[in-house]
Structures are given as structure tokens and as C-alpha cells.
């Protein structure tokens, strides 16, 4: 089975959801025309990243009752999609969230668990943290989603792996830093981490990152797809907006795992036992 995936590496207008929605729909049309079955937008793709006090003004509840999601859900009858947005819950807490839309339905929402609040990041000041990592079924197989800082914690993809995810979709608004080497220092790290997870977990790992500037912060793009052997399937350019297609041969998962059965041999019970012991000791 093959999956044609579109990495939508877009720039956003900060806090201008209607304008960003229009761009999403244009990317969706382009992806459809190119034969893509799933399109992956970056973190906070509907709003822009450094929202600060804009956050509550652009927060929404992802259902057909919301005019923005109504358009996206309509479009999802033609193509599955992952979009980034600020989710408001019933008690007015705001989360950085990614929604998987398919066939006019919201299949799953992941709320970012790890909110970086250091260096150039200040997310905890503005957002509530999610509290789960859950895989979910799609027409392409079982999927797990993480948002940016989530995947800097190795336990996050591990949980998704143990929950059955064979396709991992990561979204980021990752600013570039480090100008000495061939590529941006932060870009190199993101790629190394993505490739490592693909190889260690013998899964597909697709990642989309935003591009453009927000008050001098530059988001570097460079979106990637790695296969279960850790091989690069496709990569979008650095710093340029655009759509990049990747063809995923999903049967590679079987071939890789026949060669390297680390999933079969994984001792979840042992992991849980040891972590429970560590937790019990209050370490």
C-alpha cells in the first residue's frame, strides 16, 4: 500500500486566521491536484507561532459549528489533513493543538504536552498543557501525532509506538539558530532526532515545519519524511514556502520489521515495571 503525502511548509500571517485559512485551502487544492491523499500542515498553521496575547482571540473549538473548521472539514472529504491551531476547551483553557481531519470528521486531536518556556520560548505563559499521547486509526494505518517540543522528549514517541502508531506525524514551528555549519544548527538536530526515531521505532516519521519570520525569529522549514529504515524519503527546501510530495511505501514497515524485529522484542512490561519502581522511589 502506498500513501502520497504532502508536506505543506507554509508561512503564516500572525493572528490572521481567515487569511491563513485561505492559504490552507489553496495548498489543499494544489495537493489534491498532485494526487496527495494526506496533507500535513505545521504547528499553529492557522494562527502563526509567537501569539502571546493574541492566543485567546484566535482560539477555537474544532467542530463544524466553527466557520474555519467547517471549511477545513468540508475539504477533508477530498483529502485527509493535519492542521495546527489554538484549541479552547469548555472551561476556556487554550492549548496548542493538532487536529487530524478525514471524511468531514475530526478523527483525533493532540494537545501539545511539553510547552517550552526557556530561551526564545514562552509557551507556558500563554497555554495549558495537554496530558496524553494517544495513537488513533486512520485509513492509512495507526497514527501518532506530536507537536515540536513533544518530540524532544523520547518518551513521547515511545508511548505512541507502544500504542500502535506505525505512522508518526510531527509538526513544528521551529526557529533556526546556529550559523556556523552547512545547515542551521537547530535544523540538523531536528533531522537527526526524526531519523533516529524512524530507525529505532521502525516506523515512518513525517515532519512539517513552518517557514518565514516573526519579529526576526526565522522558521527554517526543511520538512522531512524518513522511512522505517531511517532513510530519507523526501525533504522540503530550507526557508522556502511550498508543497513537497512524498510517496510512502507502507509495506516497507513489514520488510523492515522482518529484518529488525525490535518492536516484537520490546519489553513494555519491563519498562513499566522499572519506571514504576523509579516513580515509587520518588526519583
Amino acid at each position: 500500500m502506498k500513501l502520497t503525502l504532502a508536506l505543506a511548509q507554509l508561512n503564516t500571517r500572525l493572528g490572521e486566521v481567515d487569511s491563513n485559512l485561505e492559504k490552507h485551502l489553496a495548498f489543499v487544492r494544489e495537493a489534491r491536484q498532485a494526487g496527495a491523499e494526506l496533507i500535513l500542515f505545521p504547528e499553529l498553521s492557522l494562527t502563526g507561532y509567537v501569539l502571546q496575547d493574541i492566543a485567546s482571540a484566535v482560539a477555537r473549538r474544532p467542530s463544524a459549528g466553527d466557520p474555519v473548521f467547517k471549511s477545513l472539514l468540508e475539504a477533508s472529504r477530498e483529502i485527509d489533513m493535519v492542521v495546527g491551531f489554538v484549541e479552547e476547551d469548555r472551561r476556556y483553557r487554550n492549548y496548542i493543538a493538532a487536529a487530524y481531519l478525514s471524511g468531514g470528521e475530526v478523527l483525533h486531536i493532540h494537545r501539545k504536552v511539553y510547552l517550552p518556556t526557556y530561551g526564545i520560548f514562552d509557551e507556558k505563559r500563554y497555554f495549558a498543557a495537554g496530558d496524553s499521547f494517544r495513537a488513533f486509526e486512520t485509513r492509512f494505518g495507526r497514527v501518532g501525532m506530536l507537536i515540536c517540543e513533544d518530540f524532544w522528549h523520547a518518551s513521547s514517541p515511545y508511548c505512541l509506538w507502544m500504542d500502535g502508531a506505525d505512522l508518526m506525524f510531527f509538526t513544528s514551528a521551529s526557529p533556526g539558530r546556529g550559523i556556523t555549519d552547512e545547515i542551521l544548527g537547530s535544523a540538523k538536530w531536528v533531522e537527526t532526532v526524526n531519523q533516529t526515531y524512524a530507525g529505532l521505532f521502525t516506523t515512518f516519521v513525517a515532519h512539517t515545519n513552518k517557514v518565514g519570520f516573526e519579529d526576526g525569529l526565522n522558521f527554517f522549514g526543511g520538512s522531512t519524511v524518513f522511512d522505517p529504515d531511517g532513510r530519507l524519503v523526501s525533504q522540503a527546501p530550507y526557508n522556502d514556502e511550498g508543497l513537497t510530495l512524498a510517496e510512502l511505501d507502507l509495506s516497507q514497515i513489514r520488510r523492515t520489521r522482518a529484518r529488525l524485529p525490535v518492536l516484537r522484542d520490546e519489553r513494555l512490561d519491563l519498562t513499566v515495571k522499572e519506571l514504576s519502581r523509579v516513580l515509587g522511589k520518588g526519583v
Partner: peptide, 11 residues
């Protein structure tokens, strides 16, 4: 202090 928006707000 607590009216915090980027310069690039809205663009």
C-alpha cells in the same frame, strides 16, 4: 508588561 504582542502582529 502584560499587553504583549509582537511587532509583526497581523502581518
Amino acid at each position: 508588561y502584560d499587553f504583549l504582542y509582537l511587532r509583526d502582529w497581523g502581518t
